[in-house]
Each structure stands twice: as C-alpha cells, then as structure tokens.
Design a binder for these strands. Structure first.
Length: 494
RNA sequence: GGGGGCGUAGCUCAGUUGGCAGAGCAACGGCCUUUUAAGCCGUGGGUCGAAGGUUCGAAUCCUUCCGCCCUCACCA
C-alpha cells in the first residue's frame, strides 16, 4: 500500500541524482490555461504551470492534461522536441505532479488546442497518488478531512467555494455602498453575551483569567453605537459549544449589522435588498434550486405576523383562544410531544418550530413574536404582548433575525437579571454573569437602532443549493482522528 | 447522548447460503509519434475499520470499540 509512495520517492532520488530539482521554485507564467484557449494563435509561445490530471502515453509521445485555477490545457510532449532535462522528467512523471512547461500552441488533429512542449520543468513531485480521475472523490470523510483532495478531484466543489467567496465580497460591497463601517470586535470575551448558547472556554495565562470564545459580537457592536459609529457591521466567526448537524457547525460565520436611528423595519428592507442584490451579482439569478423546490428570491418577500402565520398554517383563526387542552391535542395530533406543564405559548411555539417553520420554503419575514419568546427585544408600543422583531425564514430554516434594539439601560438591566435568575443552577450556557461593563456603556446613551444577523453559512447553502453546512465550510468540524501509533507507516494520516 | 445505516486495493465499487479476496481506474514492465475515460500484452498490490467470540471454516453471523453519514435530543 505504501508501494505507490515508495515508487515516487525513488523517482525523487533519481531526479536529484541527475541534478534535477523535483521541487522547483518560481516559474514565470505567460498565460493561464484558459487564456491559451481564449487568446489562441497558432504557434504562440506560452509558459503555463499546473497539476497533471491525466497522462496518456502514446509511443514516443505523451498527451497530458494540465489543470490550473483557470481551467485546463492539453500538453503534447514529443521525446524529440524536449530540451534539457525534459526527457529525464518525462520518464518519471506521475499523475498529480505540478509542472511548468514552455512551448508553442497548436491544434491537434481532433481539434484540441494544446501546447507542443519544448521545456518541461518539475515544480513539485507529488508523492501520493491523486483520487480516481473519472469517478472523482466521493468518500465524505476523506473529502472533509482532506479537503485539498476534494478541491483537486471535484471541480464543482472548488467552484462552490469560489462562489462563497464572491457572495461574501458582494455582501461587503453592498454594505460599503450603504455607508456601513466594517469593524472587528473581540472573539475572546471575559463574559460571553449577545445570545443564549453554551460557550467554549479557554484560559488566558498572562492575566490568569478565564476567557470565552464569543457566541455573538452583539454587545461590542452596541458599544460602538454608543461611541457614535452609526452604521456598523461585523462579518466573522462565532463559536457555540453545541451539537453538530446538517445546519450547525460549532464555528460559523455570522454577519451582524446595526443601524442607529433605524428599527426592525429598516433592517427588513436592508436584509431583503442585501440578499437579493448579492444573489443577483454573485450567482446571476434569484431562483436557486433546493432539492426539488425552487426558491424565488424576487422581492417583495412575504411579511406576516407570527400569530397570523400560525393561525393560517393550522387553518384556524381562533387558535389563540383555544384552551391549553385543545392546543395540546392539536400538537399531539401532529406527532409532537407535549408535557402538561407547557404553557399555551410553549405549545404554540413547538408547533411553529417543528411544523410551520419547515414549511416556509419561500422567503418569509415572520413578525411580532410573542414577548415571552424573545426576552431581549423591544416591545411594540401598540401591542405590548409582542416584540418588534422579525425572523427571516428561507427553505425552512432561520436565516436572519432582526430587532428593534432595546436602548433603555434600566430595562436592559432588569432583563439581564431576569435572565440570570431564570437559569437553572446547573446551566452551562452563557447568561449567568451580568455584563456590567456593557450596561455602563448603555448608560452613556445608546441611540435607538435596528439590528440584524445573517447566518452566512446558511445563506450560502441556500444560494448554492448545498444540502449540508459541511458542504459550504472548507474545513468543517469532525471528530479528531486518533494518533496513528506508527506515523511513518501512514503518512497520509498525520 | 439515543436510534438507524455504512466501513473491502491509492480511488470508485462488486463479493450469492458462512467455503480459494474480485473488477475498473491508478501503479509497475513491454508495444504504439495527434490521443483524450487512448488502445493492446503482461505483472504486482489486501490487518476486508480494530479487537474478541461462534464455527471444521468468517469480508459474510454475534459482542465491544473506532470513524463517517442520516435522524432525534441540545441549540435565541
């Protein structure tokens, strides 16, 4: 099994013995592979470099496919046309090797533009064989653990991550044009706040102080509102010490946006414009596929209050006037588990999360959540039982929440105290300690503001049609592999 | 953490009722100067995820463990 590697190492030695460096240095390229096609001229002199994806020996000639990040160009190597060390290298060429070649462009009898190679330089000898060329790399574990092989073997995977990059660039561009300032706030926080989630804990030796990886940047971004940055955003990683699933990775990318003097409605307009513009510019269309379904991102998106939505879904306008027993019966009838101590609101929300939300494939802003469900948001003036928030749902998953932010420091202190008091004593999530430093900031005066967060990984899933969050994160979290007792025996698994 | 599925050559996969470990690609040797999933002839390559058990005999059945996938739970 190590035979393949041994053979290649032997070739490295043979080349070195002949004074040929198997791991060459700088190579000046005249063109990328794609440009050889678009800028084709018979006899044009080119220098290209890339990885060998196919080698087809043909008597005293060899055809090879060279891949670089732009695409593919075929090489035609004739023994009688190679200069210098070319022959020695050619005799020891393997799939996966990275080479640089110089030569002139021509078109083969079958009509394929190719480089008639004159100079062949070995830039990096691959010691391990690449995955199979026709079926690609399918094993999910290898694809996630050794993503570089996935990227080399499966072109559509590389394309997806390029698209992810374009999406993020367009998001920044959109916010920049709207006058938002990108900021960076601490990822290591003494008190993790801004969300209810179990944090990762670490220890800062120099200060002898426990620290937490942030679960949200919210409380720092609000400090910046106090400081006079009126339109700010942060697009970076959050960390939550919770389970893995198709839509959860412990570190995930979040966009949080705050706009002073705005509110929930301001943010709804912003999020709708942002997503549609990004989809249009990065993906070129507003109708990404999702399995069987097609998502239509064309605005305006549906906006519906929580209570109306639940009533509409269940087909009964009188839902909220039902008795707890009738509500529980409805939930059980839908295959949900309810316990006697659940409040009507809790039963309703169970139905919302398990039945209503997954049914919302097309983009929907769910508005006016019951206050008891969202303790940190501002209540609506004309309906104190509801809070002024929205939750954007697309393809059955929450993509973006938005708030009319609370800016009353006294009310905020009460909410924190209530939150801390409501925690079970054995709770491991954040929220046990009141962030006095943040409250002090608020007491200096925080402007009213709208805030929104967009889960970037989930947004990318929607725009690319990916079924799992692992398919849109380059190196998703996996269980660490046990150390190999004999590393030398298995170099592929360090 | 619970339930279900999967793990066979570097990669993609077969493997029947428990009865000699297989194919294609890749590799190695040979032929071939416009091929392209090149072709033809030949060769090598296996801790069947790991350990234990049942059996005359285990890739196959049982137990435990490891890893991956799905699902539930947790999850503003």
């Amino acid at each position: 099994m190590d035979e393949l590697r041994e053979q290649r190492i032997k070739k490295v030695g043979e080349l070195s013995d002949r004074g040929i460096d198997p791991f060459g240095g700088r190579f000046l390229r005249s063109d990328e592979a794609q440009a050889c096609h678009t800028g084709y001229r018979e006899g044009k002199e080119v220098a290209v470099a890339g990885r060998l994806a196919s080698i087809r020996g043909h008597g005293k000639t060899v055809f090879a496919d060279l891949h670089d990040s732009s695409g593919k160009i075929q090489l035609y190597l004739r023994r009688d046309n190679l200069e210098g060390a070319g022959l020695e290298i050619l005799d020891r060429l393997d799939l996966g090797d990275i080479v640089g070649v110089r030569g002139e462009l021509f078109t083969t009898r079958k009509g394929e533009i190719s480089v008639l190679v004159r100079e062949l330089t070995l830039l990096s000898k691959a010691l391990l064989p690449p995955p199979e060329k026709w079926h690609g790399l399918k094993d999910r574990e290898i694809r996630y653990r050794r993503r570089y092989l996935d990227l080399v073997a499966n072109r559509e995977v590389a394309e997806l991550f390029r698209l992810r990059s374009r999406i993020i660039r367009e998001i920044r561009s959109f916010l920049d044009r709207r006058g938002f300032l990108e900021v960076e706030t601490p990822m290591m926080q003494p008190i993790p706040g801004g969300a209810a989630a179990r944090p990762f804990q670490t220890f800062y030796a120099a200060l002898h102080a426990p620290m937490f990886l942030r679960i949200a940047p919210e409380l720092y971004l609000k400090r910046l509102l106090v400081g006079g940055f009126e339109k700010v955003y942060e697009l970076n990683r959050n960390f939550r010490n919770e389970g893995l699933s198709r839509s959860h990775n412990p570190e995930f990318t979040m966009l949080e946006i705050y706009e002073a003097y705005g509110d929930c409605r301001t943010m709804m307009e912003l999020v709708e414009s942002l997503v549609t513009e990004v989809a249009d510019k990065a993906c070129g269309n507003l109708t990404p596929a999702s399995g069987e379904a097609v998502i239509d991102l064309n605005p305006p998106w549906k906006r519906i209050p929580y209570r109306d939505l639940v009533g509409e879904f269940l087909g009964r306008e009188d839902w909220f006037s039902l008795s707890p027993e009738e509500m529980a019966a409805e939930a059980v009838g839908r295959g949900l588990e309810v316990s006697p101590e659940m409040t009507p609101m809790e039963i309703t929300h169970e139905i919302y999360e398990k039945c209503v939300e997954p049914s919302l494939i097309q983009p929907t802003f769910v508005l006016d959540f019951p206050a008891s469900l969202v303790p940190l948001a501002r209540r609506k003036k004309d309906d104190p039982d509801s809070v002024d928030v929205f939750e954007l749902v697309i393809n059955g998953t929450e993509v973006a929440p938005g708030y009319s932010e609370l800016n009353d420091p006294l009310e905020q202190r009460r909410r924190f105290q209530d939150q801390a008091a409501a925690r079970p004593p054995d709770a491991t999530d954040a929220g046990g300690e009141i962030d006095e430093d943040f409250l002090e900031a608020m007491e200096s005066g925080m402007p009213p503001a709208g805030g929104a967060g967009i889960g970037i990984d989930r947004l990318v899933m929607i725009l690319t049609g990916a079924a799992s969050i692992r398919d849109v994160i380059l190196f998703p979290q996996l269980r660490p592999k046990k150390e190999d007792p004999n590393p030398e025996a298995s170099p592929a698994n360090p």
